[in-house]
């Protein structure tokens, strides 16, 4: 009897497990993470050293990305991709999308350097950084982290950081997680849809 009940129930159980893993919306190219993370909120400083908060970037689509200007691979690639995506957008909504590049290496990325680096990728890229406390509060809020390597003889050290881009809508709600497997055209498409949805 027990055996019979088991053979009847276990396929149902397995099916349930499988189904729960397969729910994915087909609407977006990026991963839909609506409601999984809190609203955009931060206290940082901009490349001019002035304190800024999320209020300074309200009522627009924000793409939040963490990195450092000495980054050899991930940061320049991702920033170039995002900048290309923004260039792909119709002119009417182009200036309503901002890329917030948060440097998690404040020791090396001070004012001028950060401004120059961000500016190289386009007008829509905003360079931000902060104290360790501010950065930790923000990374923790979005369940990401960063860490430093030992410095070599030239004082160069590597920094581990999140490769994800978090997209927030004009209300500051988290909507998408953009991974590095998307093309600029796909990102632009998602941005347009996001603009229409809000």
């Amino acid at each position: 009897m027990c055996l019979l009940r088991f053979f009847m129930l276990s396929p149902a159980l397995l099916l349930l497990l499988l189904l729960s893993g397969c729910q994915q919306s087909e609407q977006w190219h990026a991963k839909d993470i609506s409601g999984l993370m809190p609203k955009l909120r931060f206290e940082l400083s901009n490349a001019q050293g002035e304190s800024v908060t999320e209020a300074d970037y309200a009522a627009q689509i924000n793409l939040l990305f963490f990195g450092f200007t000495n980054c050899p691979d991930i940061c320049p690639t991702t920033l170039a991709q995002l900048a290309a995506a923004v260039r792909n957008l119709p002119e009417s909504i182009r200036d309503q999308v901002h890329i917030l590049f948060v440097s998690v290496d404040p020791q090396r990325d001070e004012g001028g350097r950060l401004a120059e680096y961000a500016g190289a990728f386009g007008e829509q890229v905003v360079g931000l950084t902060g104290t360790q406390d501010q950065l930790q509060a923000l990374t923790r809020r979005y369940r990401v982290t960063y860490g430093y390597d030992e410095a070599d003889a030239n004082g160069y050290y590597n920094v581990s950081h999140s490769s994800a881009v978090f997209a927030f809508d004009a209300d500051g709600q988290v909507r998408l997680l953009i991974r590095d497997d998307l093309t600029p055209a796909q990102i632009a498409e998602d941005m347009q849809r996001l603009q229409q949805n809000t």
């Binding site: 963490f66 990374t139 369940r143 990401v144 982290t145 960063y146 860490g147 430093y148 390597d149 590597n158 920094v159 581990s160 950081h161 999140s162 490769s163 994800a164 997680l177 991974r179």
Partner: peptide, 13 residues
Amino acid sequence: FDVYAVCGRAWPI
């Protein structure tokens, strides 16, 4: 598992 790249690692490895 790309989630560790997406979220960042505790130290570079």
